[in-house]
Design a protein around this nucleic acid. Structure first.
Length: 283
DNA sequence: ATCGTCACGGTTGAG
DNA sequence: CACTCAACCGTGACG
């Protein structure tokens, strides 16, 4: 991580837009790209207006058309080589049946039961890690699995699960926005699943929270909205149009310039994000 | 002028 | 716990 020198400020592209190399654009901007496109604005104009390279606009729109999701793909990590869902499931079963079972016994059983062959059976240390990291949190296991899979091969357009992590992505905003009483706020368990994919988007790094705060001043533009939008996906797009109106230029420009204002305060949760990426210490 | 595509330098996180 | 490496990112340039 190169955060030593110019961490939170990102870089400026040819259009004057700010970005963080290697990191996804903030969801707010991704959303705007799709919204503007839906309004019939040409990609080249969107590019200029939002100051995002046209290649990026093109990519985001293409993905949206293909998958219905505005979200970036799952960054980092690697696909399970031996720790497949099936294997984990079996290990869990073994562990449940015999809590005192040793890792090497599990290994033997995986082989004996034909779950794995000698080439793909997890090592004892892998099994130990599975026991520690996954089986240890049984309650969330099922969710983890499906969520993770959705994410990893996020080719699948349909499933609603896919949108689960938009909660995650936008939750920082929601967390930051002082959810008005009576407003449906997201339960934190939902907003911040343990398996948060990747919390440090530019949103966080650059302090886009501030822009979303500003936005939320003028319109109810926080995660419940986005949630709604997402569940509506491509078909029910009308409902977002008022959002768009509510967001008119003023907020848009602020949005685009988001990082140039205050970003020094966002000591992003970099590196510690997995559990509670945005434990916003509101104060 | 516009847009699809890709090399590039970058970050991330499961293994 | 440090490392690896394949996934992803957006930009910028080319056609």
């Amino acid at each position: 991580m190169h955060l030593s020198t110019e961490p939170a400020f990102g870089e400026v592209n040819q259009l004057g837009g700010v970005f963080v190399n290697g990191r996804p654009l903030p969801n707010a901007i991704r959303l705007r790209i799709v919204e503007l496109a839906q309004l019939g604005i040409r990609p080249c104009d969107i590019s200029r207006q939002l100051r995002v390279s046209h290649g990026c606009v093109s990519k985001i729109l293409a993905r949206y058309n293909e998958t219905g999701s505005i979200l970036p793909g799952a960054i980092g990590g690697s696909k399970p080589r031996v720790t497949t869902p099936t294997v984990v499931k079996h290990i869990r079963t073994y562990k449940q049946r015999d809590p005192g079972i040793f890792a090497w016994e599990i290994r033997d059983r995986l082989l004996a039961d034909g779950v794995c062959d000698k080439y793909n059976v997890p090592s004892v240390s892998s099994i130990s890690r599975i026991l520690r990291n996954k089986i240890g949190t049984l309650s969330q296991q099922g969710h983890y699995e499906s969520h993770k899979q959705q994410q990893q091969q996020q080719q699948h357009p349909t499933s609603a699960l896919q949108y689960n992590h938009i909660y995650s992505y936008t939750s920082p905003m929601a967390a930051k926005v002082p959810t008005p009483p009576g407003m449906h706020s997201i339960p934190s368990s939902m907003a911040m699943p343990r398996t948060w994919p990747s919390s440090h988007s530019v949103t966080d790094i650059l302090g886009i929270r501030s822009i979303t705060d500003q936005v939320s001043d003028t319109s109810p533009y926080h995660s419940p909205k986005i949630e709604e939008w997402c569940s509506l996906s491509r078909n029910g797009f009308q409902s977002t149009q008022h959002m768009l109106n509510g967001l008119e230029k003023g907020s848009l420009e602020q949005e685009v310039k988001y990082s140039q204002t205050d970003s020094s305060t966002v000591a992003g949760p970099i590196g510690t994000s997995q559990i509670r990426p945005y434990s916003v210490p509101d104060a």
